[in-house]
Amino acid sequence: MAAFIVRRLLAAVILLVVVSMMTFAIFFLVPRLAGMNSDQLALRYVGRGATAESIEATKERLHLDDPLPVQYGRFVQGIVVGDEFNYGPEVVKCPPPCFGYSFRNSQPVTALLIDRIPVTASLAFGAAILWLIGGVSVGVLSALRRGSVFDRAAMSTALAGVSLPIYFTGLLSLALFAYHWKLWPNGVNYVPFTTNPLDWAYNLILPWVTLAFLYAALYARLTRASMLETMNEDYIRTARAKGLRERTVVVRHGMRASLTPILTIFGLDVGLLLGGAVLTESTFSLPGLGQLVVDAVFGNDLPIVLGVVMVASVFVILANLIVDVLYATLDPRVRL
């Protein structure tokens, strides 16, 4: 097991390097291939009101005329050993992992990321708990009462749930709960957990429920299908033949087998969301990673995009690793 984890961590590092190269190439190589020169690239950082001097100065400071591999090397060096920026009135220290400097925000990217990650994490973990409990229990009950009124109602709702986009359900819930019934008269305003846990939860309820509804619908359908399949297995019949109570048959034998694959999908979904729940964040104006990257893309803020992509990749790769280890512990047939 330990050897497996070490091996996977190594693979994860290699994967991260590849991802960083590719992202770097997309943002720095492709524009060049498309015919942009370093003046035009520098213009992106300076923004409006650029003069010939400021462009020249920016080019110099960002070493935009250096060969690409050297630039990439500098980027990696920042991540590993940190960097220092000298663009404003004072020198800004950027300890590792340093993803560069955002001129538009006049801040190192890492500071921005650290600001935004808790928001996205709050949203993702809260919603994940809701949808895991909700989706799985509805799915299991539906499977056990296949064809019943409950099953049919649940599955129709789930079908609606997976087909409705977040910005629709999100705006609808805002319109109804926040503005019509005035349960959130001022809308949703993120409050950090450390400032006030109650306010934190109160403001996140709508985004949690909206995001969880979509995933719960998906998970209810997955769980139902998996459970139906499992309950038809021969080993379930064996469990009944032993004289076990039906509860034990369902929980210890049925759910144990049918939920294992669901749990792995769950891990991957959470990992993916941690990189930014773009739609939910923009619907509820939550200042998370998703918002950050959307703003950065529209504002041509390359260092931020690069930073968010790197962070998101780390989450996804970590989630994969955790899921693999989890699966191996849950399913004895998997050899590591």
Binding site: E233, Y235, R237, T238, A241, R256, A257, T260, D331, R333
Partner: peptide, 13 residues
């Protein structure tokens, strides 16, 4: 009862 197919008749986990 002893079942027909002993691989599928035992819980794999």
């Amino acid at each position: 009862m002893i079942f027909q197919d002993p691989l599928s008749a035992m819980h794999p986990f």
